[in-house]
Design a protein around this nucleic acid. Sequence first.
DNA 1: TATTAAGCGAGACGGTACGTCACGTCTTAGG
DNA 2: CCTAAGACGTGACGTACCGTCTCGCTTAATA
Lengths: 200, 200, 200, 200
Amino acid sequence: MGDEQGERGRRGPGRPRQEHLTRAVLDAVVELVAESGMGALTMDAVAARAGVSKPAMYRRWPTKQDLVIAAAEARIGALTVPDMGDFRAELRAVLTARMKAYRQPGVGRLLAGVIGAAAEAGAEPGAYRAYTSRVMSETRHLLERGVARGDVRPDADVDDAATLVAASLVFRMVGEQRLLDEALVESMVDLIGRAVGTHP
Amino acid sequence: MGDEQGERGRRGPGRPRQEHLTRAVLDAVVELVAESGMGALTMDAVAARAGVSKPAMYRRWPTKQDLVIAAAEARIGALTVPDMGDFRAELRAVLTARMKAYRQPGVGRLLAGVIGAAAEAGAEPGAYRAYTSRVMSETRHLLERGVARGDVRPDADVDDAATLVAASLVFRMVGEQRLLDEALVESMVDLIGRAVGTHP
Amino acid sequence: MGDEQGERGRRGPGRPRQEHLTRAVLDAVVELVAESGMGALTMDAVAARAGVSKPAMYRRWPTKQDLVIAAAEARIGALTVPDMGDFRAELRAVLTARMKAYRQPGVGRLLAGVIGAAAEAGAEPGAYRAYTSRVMSETRHLLERGVARGDVRPDADVDDAATLVAASLVFRMVGEQRLLDEALVESMVDLIGRAVGTHP
Amino acid sequence: MGDEQGERGRRGPGRPRQEHLTRAVLDAVVELVAESGMGALTMDAVAARAGVSKPAMYRRWPTKQDLVIAAAEARIGALTVPDMGDFRAELRAVLTARMKAYRQPGVGRLLAGVIGAAAEAGAEPGAYRAYTSRVMSETRHLLERGVARGDVRPDADVDDAATLVAASLVFRMVGEQRLLDEALVESMVDLIGRAVGTHP
DNA sequence: TATTAAGCGAGACGGTACGTCACGTCTTAGG
DNA sequence: CCTAAGACGTGACGTACCGTCTCGCTTAATA
């Protein structure tokens, strides 16, 4: 699961970890994926590109999956949309932000890799689930705010609508392997707006 | 890409392929994935489980990816929804059919594996794209029929709406790793129906 | 322990092992040791030098120890001294033969490595013991023939005398790290001849 | 080569080394080897067992080899046999003393390890040679005293005879991997006594 | 009926990555 | 200057999987 989430505070005695190595590795992951796809994402290749030793990597992320997820999170990051007084506007904001994050070079393939890796053998859902559920709850929050405000139908299933929001961009990119653009965002704002909005 | 699509006709002289081996292999793939996930899906393991030699497998599917896609297709299969006179009914039919296909044991992880594998290094999009675009065009056909019939808005982007339809179940299962059920289908019929329907 | 001792007969179905690989590996071991000592005897280095893959090596010798012992045996080989009618002459013959075998480049260090490796962790005595006891019994046979003939004292402990014969050259080379020569052999023939001979 | 031979006097300013750490490490080496063989003799394991940090070890013995040799010397130690007026008696004394030293738990494997390590790559003969030649000269001294006294043949090669004396026990233990006992010592006194003695 | 091309199981092969381990160094903080 | 703790680079380890190949055998369609 990686322990890089631990508070940056004391780690007891001994030489502390060098944070620039952590960054170098995450950068190397994205670069390699952007250049040559997930197939080129070898632990050895990452270590070589980052100028870091393999043990130093495995100390931080015990599994390739953990590393990949950490790299994806570092590029996609968290997302909080402020109350803009209008559901459609907020939806446009969040989709636009995600579109831009996903369009960064390598992020698309990285995300596909993360999804594939989550289906692995013993793959403890740990890190992956943590990431996924965080993203979903952001979206649910948006919908609930809309319900409270009155521009989202109260009888729409928030869970399922949130799935629709999250799925749209990810599936287009990863499933259909097509590029994302503003037109898609606009289209989705319209479709999902009609699906859950109070005023058609 | 696999040559198993070739017409079953003449293959010239020599001993013909034994079709029961083909079936045994595809079954073994699904069984293994269902039991132990994609990580356990070794070519050797498949061969052992199916009681088939590796060369016999590679004669049929030149690559592991091809085999995985073939196995997924064999379980999910093609889908043609007859004209039922009502878009929502047809949408419910197609989503229900897919839900049932996806819920078969192993199919979820298999699909995740296919998606992940499509992001590999040189991964010629070949087989994957062929499968994906076939599925998408089925859905587009449904929407176009609705437009012609008059119960789907003509100004809705068919492409983007089709993405929404396909994404809903796949993302819930693969992205969120949650089980599919009838309630989700009903929810999606409602949401997508409102999104593209002419009568709210 | 290595299975390379198996009779060269049938190995059942499947592709047979390529014997030239076996030879190439054993040669590479000796070359590397002769050039750079046991420290340079990496499995990777051997594989590279022999132009053989690591799995192909591990199929033949499951352990580095087994490989080292096999290489040593291939260079030192078995030894049978014919009845020459005189114990001292036979002793001179066997010591001369061993001296020549040990003086081959790399063999000295190889032997030291074998001895060191035999003290390793779980080191099942298997291969090492087999080799050692074969060498010792050759020497014992020589002594027993001398007793039967009448030029070796019947009250000399054959076991301990055999140890002395085997130890002389090996310790000089491995323990003292000095080169072997004919003078040493002559000296040992004299000393051991007096130690166990009937006519001083 | 290790600096532990340095005079125990002043080491300049600063905190002096704690001698009990030195002893703890050497003890830990022998314990570990006795329990689990050379394979378990890791620098980390020694440090852990001795309750000492790695830098503290490397300050004393710059190399693992140096540590191993130091541990062996500490258990085997130097040996000076007083003039007993009879070569055979002195020979019995020295062999008995060595037999007892070698029979201590772990010492056999430790000695094998030392011999193996001496064949390593760049292994500067330093420490090993120093130890070996000291042992050999002890034995030569014994023989020379016998020659002077008149109970050792003056035409016996002292060097080669000394090799025989040293080799007997070491080879039996390390080469043949058999236990040492008084009978072997008695046997060797008889054999070597006949080999170099003036009165058969 | 004989030939022949292809299929088949078995398993060795080269290649490449895996995740781990050990060595010897270095960096922190504290005595 | 010593000490404990522990991260670091280096490099080898032994294993696993992929996709290919070489065996010796079997099976049909063709000649």
